[in-house]
C-alpha cells in the first residue's frame, strides 16, 4: 500500500499521466466537436494514424517541427472533409463511412510509408519536441516537473481545451454548432447553412484528431511504427460519452485515463512477478468500457446525432 501511495505522490507519475493524456485530449476534443454538430466520426482511429505518419514524415523531409504539426492537421482535415462529404450532403451511414475512412486513412499512411522507405529495418528517427524549460517555473517543486517540463504539444492540447470551451459556450458559432447537432431544422429556419456548419465542424474536429496522432511520433516517440495508434482513437469515442460532450469533462476524462495508464505501467514493474503483464495492459481498455457503461445511462446524446438532414425535406 505504501508503494501505491509513493507512486501517487510522485511528480514523475503525474507528469507521465499528463503526457499519456495529451493525444487523448486532442482526440476527445475533435470527436466532441464532430458529435456536437450531429456527426459521429469513426474515422478517428485512421486520422490518428495519418496525423502520426504525416507529422513525422514532414519533419523527416525537413519541414521543421511546427511545419510537421501543420501538415498533420491539414492531412487530418482532408480526411475529415471526405467524411463530411459522405455523411452530410450525401447523408450516408455515419458508422460505415467512418469505418471506411479509418481503413482508407490507415492504408494510405502505411502504403506511403512503405513506398517512401521500402527497406528499412529500424524506423528513421527525427529530433522530436523537447520538454519546455521555463526558468523559475520549471524549478518549482511538484508543479515544475508535472506542468512546466512538458513539450509544447501538451501545452497546445491544454490551450485547445480552453479554446474549444470558449467557442462552444461563449460564441455564436458555438451556439450554432450545438444547435445543428440538436435541431438542424431550427438552424435552417434561421437562415444558417446546416451543411456548412456540420462540414466545418467535422473538418476542424478531424484536424484536432490528427494532432493527437502527431503527438505520438513527434513528442512521445521520435519515429513512426505500424500499429502505434493501437486503439487510442476508439478510446476517445468512449471518453467523449463519458465527458457528456463538454470540453472540461473531456480534459478530466483524458487525465483520468492517463493517470490510470501511468499507474498500470508502474504496477506492472512492481508486481510483474505475481500477475502476468497482460492483465495490466488490458486494464485501460476495460476501464474505457466501464466508463462507457456508467455514463451511457444518463448520456444526453446530441439529439440529431446519426440523423442525416436534407434541405427541403422534413
Amino acid at each position: 500500500m505504501m508503494d501505491l501511495l509513493n507512486i501517487l505522490l510522485s511528480d514523475s507519475f503525474w507528469a507521465a499521466s499528463l503526457r499519456i493524456a495529451t493525444p487523448l485530449i486532442f482526440g476527445v476534443l475533435g470527436a466532441l466537436i464532430c458529435e456536437r454538430a450531429g456527426v459521429l466520426n469513426l474515422g478517428i482511429e485512421g486520422i490518428f494514424v495519418v496525423g502520426a505518419m504525416c507529422g513525422w514524415m514532414a519533419v523527416w523531409l525537413g519541414a521543421g517541427l511546427w511545419g510537421g504539426v501543420l501538415f498533420a492537421a491539414l492531412a487530418g482535415a482532408f480526411f475529415g472533409l471526405l467524411h463530411a462529404i459522405l455523411t452530410v450532403p450525401l447523408g450516408l451511414s455515419q458508422h460505415v463511412s467512418g469505418l471506411g475512412i479509418t481503413l482508407f486513412a490507415t492504408s494510405v499512411s502505411y502504403y506511403t510509408y512503405r513506398t517512401a522507405l521500402p527497406n528499412v529495418s529500424s524506423p528513421p528517427r527525427i529530433e522530436p519536441f523537447q520538454a519546455l524549460d521555463i526558468p523559475v517555473l520549471s524549478d518549482l517543486p511538484f508543479l515544475g516537473p508535472v506542468l512546466f517540463q512538458q513539450t509544447a504539444l501538451t501545452w497546445l492540447a491544454l490551450l485547445m481545451v480552453g479554446l474549444v470551451w470558449y467557442v462552444m459556450n461563449r460564441t455564436a458559432l458555438g451556439v450554432a454548432i450545438k444547435a445543428v447537432g440538436d435541431n438542424p431544422d431550427s438552424v435552417d429556419a434561421q437562415g444558417l447553412s446546416v451543411y456548412g456548419l456540420r462540414m466545418g465542424a467535422i473538418v476542424a474536429g478531424s484536424a484536432l484528431m490528427a494532432l493527437g496522432g502527431a503527438f505520438l511520433t513527434m513528442s512521445a516517440f521520435d519515429a513512426f511504427f505500424f500499429g502505434m495508434v493501437n486503439g487510442r482513437g476508439w478510446v476517445c469515442i468512449a471518453l467523449v460519452i463519458f465527458a457528456s460532450w463538454r470540453p472540461g469533462k473531456a480534459l478530466l476524462g483524458a487525465l483520468l485515463f492517463g493517470a490510470f495508464d501511468a499507474l498500470q505501467v508502474r504496477l506492472q514493474t512492481e508486481m510483474g512477478a505475481l500477475v502476468p503483464g497482460q492483465v495490466f495492459l488490458m486494464a485501460p481498455y476495460i476501464l474505457s468500457i466501464i466508463a462507457l457503461v456508467i455514463a451511457a445511462r444518463s448520456a444526453d446524446y446530441p439529439r440529431a446525432l446519426l440523423t442525416p438532414w436534407f434541405k427541403g425535406q422534413r
Binding site: 458508422h95 486503439g231 469515442i237 468512449a238 460519452i241 497482460q278 488490458m282 481498455y285 457503461v293 451511457a296
Partner: peptide, 19 residues
C-alpha cells in the same frame, strides 16, 4: 445499460488480443 456496441466491440478486440 445503453452502452454503444460500436465502441464496446471495438475495445473488446484489443482486450481479447491481449488476453
Amino acid at each position: 445499460f445503453g452502452a454503444d456496441e460500436v465502441v464496446t466491440t471495438l475495445l473488446l478486440n484489443f482486450i481479447i488480443l491481449i488476453f
